[in-house]
Design a protein around this nucleic acid. Structure first.
Lengths: 154, 154
DNA sequence: TTTACTGCAAAATGTTTGCATAAGG
DNA sequence: CCTTATGCAAACATTTTGCAGTAAA
């Protein structure tokens, strides 16, 4: 086993949402961790799992991703076009979307989080309960083969 | 005619993108203005236009929305689920998404724009050209029948 | 043993395509 | 005129559904 996490804890997590900790839910979750950089769509997850789980069905993957997202165990990521993409990382972070490669790159920035949180403390939104907010940067990679790196300027 | 805008200017705008200023493109654009609060999907636009433009086809609406968006005449709005939604207003603004009513409410906030712009001046993003960034607040209306109002706290 | 979940296939939804016809410049 | 866009219907892609059978608790 090469996952730096505890499968028992995951079963526990799933169960504590009132869900059955089925094999499918566990492997879908693990696939999401393994494919983290890809922010995969349902079909990516399905294809990733198929070799070792030949009987899993695409419909189940759809349902499982939806169920896990509804229960806050994973997050749905908005993408520029069409299909839902998913992220096992539910901690606060933003995304950078590249329209050239369709990649979604994580953008974690504590300073930004704090800036926005404190900003919204000064805004009062009447008749609305914010469950979350996110910032998305869109644009395109200059060199598709290289990484995107965010640095702080002095 | 009850539009507070200049149709000739729109034709001009369309033409200056190298596109033909067809009747369909004009009425699709106008529909988008009229349905602004709805941030409509293609089908909403189609149904809105059908009565006065009985021969317009849904396929054309899809193509037109795509063409206008590609040419920066309108904006695509990301929505929590599935289909593309559109906005004729291309000026900088953010959106509030209500998961209860599926509404998208405009959120215009100059202070926020400025805060973010100056923040990103201090971040250097290597190998990426930002074309735009947007913030989305998600959550749900407390009373679906009432408006969402954002106010500044002193 | 009961209830919730899966797999499968079919249906529904949303979007794109190809091509003959029509309209814009 | 020449080119680009439209309308239509069919194709495609993605997601959901219904239901009989299976696995979790």
């Amino acid at each position: 086993m090469h996952h730096p996490y505890n499968r028992a804890a995951l079963q526990q997590q799933i169960a504590s949402s009132g869900l059955k900790a089925t094999h499918q839910r566990i492997v879908v979750y693990e696939a999401l961790m393994e494919l983290h950089d890809k922010h995969p769509v349902a079909e990516d997850v399905f294809l990733h799992l198929k070799p070792n789980n030949p009987t899993i069905s695409l419909g189940t993957v759809y349902k499982t991703l939806d169920t896990l997202a509804e229960n806050g165990l994973i997050k749905r990521v908005l993408s520029e076009k069409g299909s839902n993409r998913y992220d096992a990382d539910t901690t606060a972070h933003n995304h950078i979307y590249c329209s050239k490669t369709k990649e979604i790159v994580d953008y974690r920035d504590e300073e930004l989080e704090e800036l926005l949180t404190s900003f919204f403390k000064k805004r009062h939104i009447e008749n609305f309960e914010i469950s979350n907010f996110f910032l998305q940067l869109s644009g395109s990679k200059v060199d598709p083969d290289k990484q995107v790196i965010i640095t702080r300027l002095k």
